[in-house]
Simulated scan of single mutants.
Amino acid sequence: MSSVQRFRGRIAGWGTASGTRLVVGRWDVSPFGAFADVMVERPDGERILLAPSHQVASLVATTYRFDRVEVCPVTVSRGDGPEHWQVVAGPLEARVDVGRRTALGRVLRVVPRRVAASHRTTVLTDPVARVFLRGVRTRGSAGPGRVEHYGATDVHEITGARTEWAGESLGDLRDVDPPVRFGFGSTPRRPAVTGVVTTIVER
């Protein structure tokens, strides 16, 4: 008998002029309650996970690949309005400006939510995402005996980001280039906030 874990929230991915790329998950519904986590790839290739608890760190670190894992408070708030994310996690502080819905986001809004969020739909969306989103995957291994599925429900562009690491600016907003190397999912090249339902099926 298989077990299913489902996470519903948003993922923000962006790059910086210094070469650091970041992926922030803000999960409103999960087996662990609401939480946020941060994946960072530094210019030298070091991959870092910032997780709010050992339980979350254990799950994420067995699903993706990291060189270092830090357990620390992670908060993602709306800042001074719905179009801003304020991220604080260990050495990271960032303000992310969220803009309009993208063309892909408009298409996804037309798809019935139960269809877009279904892990069975990824059989169809995975090959499309690989071609049109520069190698992004919506279905792949989450470790021995587990398969992870991404069901995207919306996409908004990121129009600006001020990002600091240990008090030092990482520079202006850039594309996520080169792609991050945490696991199969990656994140779109263009900075974006994606509404997503992530399902992990263990057999």
Rank of each mutant, 00 (worst) to 15 (best):
M1S: 03
S2W: 06
S3A: 05
R6G: 06
R8N: 11
R8K: 06
G13K: 14
G15L: 10
A17I: 05
S18H: 08
T20D: 08
L22R: 01
V24R: 00
V24P: 05
D28C: 10
G33Y: 05
F35Y: 15
A36D: 14
A36G: 04
M39T: 09
V40Q: 15
G45K: 14
E46A: 15
I48Y: 12
L50D: 02
A51K: 02
V60M: 10
A61D: 14
A61Y: 00
T62I: 05
T63Y: 08
E70Y: 00
V71W: 00
V71P: 00
C72S: 04
T75N: 01
G79R: 02
P82A: 12
W85L: 15
Q86F: 01
P91F: 09
A94H: 12
A94T: 13
R100W: 13
R100N: 02
R100I: 12
R100Y: 10
T102F: 15
T102L: 15
A103K: 07
L104I: 11
G105N: 11
R109Y: 02
R109T: 04
R113S: 03
R113K: 02
R113Q: 00
R114F: 10
R114E: 06
V115L: 11
V115Q: 04
S118L: 02
H119Q: 00
R130N: 00
L133F: 11
L133M: 14
L133E: 00
V136T: 10
R139F: 04
G140W: 04
G143V: 12
G143R: 01
G143E: 02
P144E: 01
R146W: 04
R146I: 11
V147R: 04
G151H: 01
G151N: 03
A152T: 00
D154H: 08
V155N: 02
R162S: 11
R162Y: 01
R162D: 05
E164F: 00
E164V: 07
W165V: 08
A166R: 01
G167T: 08
S169W: 04
S169P: 12
D175T: 10
D175Q: 10
V176L: 11
R181L: 07
R181K: 10
F182K: 03
S186F: 02
R190Q: 13
P191L: 07
P191A: 11
T194P: 10
V197M: 14
T198W: 13
T199P: 15
I200A: 15
